[in-house]
Amino acid sequence: MKLIHLGSVISVGAEAVIYKGYFIDREAVIKKRVRKKYRNPLLDKRIRLLRTRREAIILVRARSIGVPVPILYYLDLSDYTIVMEHIDGELLREIVDEIHDEKLSKLSEQLGKFIGLLHGNKIVHGDLTTSNVMLKDDEGLYLIDFGLGNITYDIEEYATEIHLFKRALKASHPDKFNTIFKSFIRGYRSTYPKADSVLERASTIELRGRYIEKNRRRK
């Protein structure tokens, strides 16, 4: 019997091709990390293998600590393929401009709580943007795409996550930035005791970047 039925392509991302198909008789999302033509073959294999393996491990761990992520159904490292639950919801990115500030603030706080939980359990998402958060009507938020995720004790990585999320929000939702980020931090603090030291490190990461005015005042 065929385990995986690929179905149709739903997106061609930078990282992988995503199919919506079936795992045995269940609706599933199939994520195949394809070869990148621009990348040296050796480097290409190394990256695809590492990321496929990490993503699978993180999906399992995140679920076990109560962070809603798709269920991992199947893993085929030889083909750099992950098969997981299909989440029937909307991307947060698509609805940010449509929902009321009050609801947006609530969702952002919830997202902060989940990220706090992840960091408390040594997991970083690695690509936290509103494109990687889904809202399922009656069940709330789901985190998806752990393709750049990592399991690490390094506070720098948690702080980078916060810094990059902040930057992504500023670029994508400049008008909603304050609403989202404030509530996000409130949630983050509530589930992660070491939140403050991470936030402090996040601001030093920001200062390390190019052309940051605050640099000068520090000297």
Binding site: G13, A14, Y38, R39, N40
Partner: peptide, 17 residues
């Protein structure tokens, strides 16, 4: 190869997003 691959990857990410 590595420095450019990194740049191509993030460019492709932004492009598809």
């Amino acid at each position: 190869e590595i420095a450019f691959s990194m740049l191509c990857e993030v460019t492709e990410r932004a492009l598809t997003q």
